[in-house]
C-alpha cells in the first residue's frame, strides 16, 4: 500500500480483496481435512517441525504455552458420561486457515501479514515488529510468537538435529510472529518449475509436509482454481464454497451460537467459524459418528 494508492483508490483497497471477485486467476491454494480419517497420530505435526525448522521449546516452556507447533492436533473428549479410557476422543488438526478475509491482516500496524495473489496469508518476518495484534485478533489462535531467541537455545535442535534444518526455510528471530505457510517454499519451487516449462502446477505435483506425512491421507491440498484437482472436487462434492459464510451442510440450521451447528443434510464439509466471515481456505470433513450412521 502506498500513498498514491491510498489517495487514488481508497475504497478499492478492501474491495479488491480476494473474496468474491475471483481474483485468483491461476492458483488458490486450499486444503481439505477428513476428520474421519484422522487418527490423531501427530505425524503431520512432526513433519511440520522438520520441514519448517520449528524449534522444540522443552517441557517447561511448553507448559507455559510458549510452544511453536504450527500444526497442532487438538483433542476433544466426547461428553457422553463415560470415564477416561473408554471416553471417545475426537482429533482436530489445526493450523493457519489462510482466511480470505483474514482478521490478522487488517490489524497489523506495519502490514507484515498480507494476502498473496495465490490466496495465501503470508507473514513477512523482517517487517514484523511484534505487536502481536494479529494473534489477538485471530479467531483460531494459530499464530505463534517467538517469545525467546529459540535458535540460540540448545534444546531447540539438539545435536545432530541441526543437520536436518531445512535450508529453504529461514530461522526466525526472537520477537516476530510466525505461523503455518502452507509450505510456501515448496509451492514456490513448484510454481517456478511449472513456469519454466510454460504450464501451471499440476495436481499432486506439490504436497505440504503434513499432507505428505499423513498415514491415512486425511489431508489433501491443491489448487482450488483447477477444477480437476482433488481439493476442488472435494469442495464441490461437499458444496462448500469459498466466498460463502454458510455452507449447504448448515442450511436450515438457525442456531446463532458459535460452533453449535446441527446439520440436517448428509453433507460433511464445513469450515470453522464460518459465521465470523473470515472465509478460511481449509475445509474439514465432519467425522461420521456412530450415532449419525
Amino acid at each position: 500500500m502506498s500513498v498514491s494508492n491510498l489517495l487514488q483508490n481508497w475504497s478499492a483497497v478492501r474491495h479488491t480483496h480476494p473474496v468474491g471477485d475471483a481474483p485468483h486467476a491461476e492458483y488458490k491454494w486450499a486444503m481439505a481435512i477428513d476428520l474421519d480419517a484422522c487418527t490423531g497420530c501427530n505425524a503431520c505435526s512432526v513433519a511440520c517441525y522438520a520441514e519448517n525448522n520449528l524449534p522444540a521449546v522443552g517441557k517447561d516452556k511448553f507448559e507455559h504455552g510458549q510452544q511453536m507447533h504450527w500444526m497442532r492436533i487438538e483433542r476433544y473428549w466426547d461428553e457422553d458420561g463415560r470415564d477416561m479410557p473408554d471416553q471417545g476422543a475426537q482429533f482436530l488438526p489445526m493450523m493457519c486457515q489462510h482466511c480470505e478475509a483474514a482478521p490478522c491482516e487488517t490489524v497489523c500496524p506495519v502490514g507484515a501479514t498480507n494476502h498473496t495473489a495465490d490466496g495465501l496469508n503470508s507473514q513477512v518476518y523482517n517487517r514484523c515488529v511484534g505487536s502481536r495484534y494479529c494473534s489477538a485478533n485471530c479467531p483460531f489462535k494459530v499464530r505463534y510468537f517467538n517469545w525467546y531467541s529459540y535458535p540460540d537455545q540448545e534444546i531447540s535442535w539438539p545435536s545432530p538435529m541441526e543437520q536436518q534444518l531445512n535450508p529453504d526455510v529461514t530461522v526466525r528471530t526472537k520477537g516476530v510472529m510466525e505461523k503455518c505457510t502452507f509450505c510456501v517454499q515448496r509451492l514456490t519451487v513448484a510454481k517456478h518449475n511449472a513456469r519454466n516449462e510454460g504450464r501451471l502446477v499440476q495436481d499432486g505435483e506439490v504436497q505440504t509436509a503434513c499432507q505428505q506425512a499423513c498415514p491415512t491421507s486425511a489431508i489433501s491440498f491443491g489448487n482450488l482454481v483447477d477444477p480437476a484437482s482433488k481439493v476442488a472436487k472435494q469442495w464441490k462434492a461437499q458444496q462448500v464454497e469459498l466466498a460463502v459464510d454458510k455452507q449447504a451442510k448448515d442450511e436450515g440450521d438457525d442456531s446463532h451460537e458459535v460452533g453449535e451447528h446441527h446439520s440436517t443434510t448428509k453433507l460433511r464439509g464445513y469450515r470453522i467459524f464460518e459465521e465470523l466471515r473470515a472465509y478460511p481456505s481449509v475445509m474439514y470433513l465432519e467425522r461420521v459418528r456412530e450415532s449419525a450412521v
Binding site: 500500500m1 506495519v110 505487536s131 502481536r132 526472537k174
Partner: peptide, 27 residues
C-alpha cells in the same frame, strides 16, 4: 513490542523501499 528496535516501522516515514505502515490498523 517484540522487536523494540524496529518500532519505527509503525510510523509513516518516507523510505527508499516505498513501504508504508498499514493504515487500516487501529494500532
Amino acid at each position: 513490542l517484540g522487536r523494540l528496535w524496529q518500532f519505527y516501522y509503525s510510523l509513516p516515514y518516507p523510505n527508499e523501499r516505498g513501504l508504508w505502515p498499514n493504515f487500516q490498523s487501529p494500532l
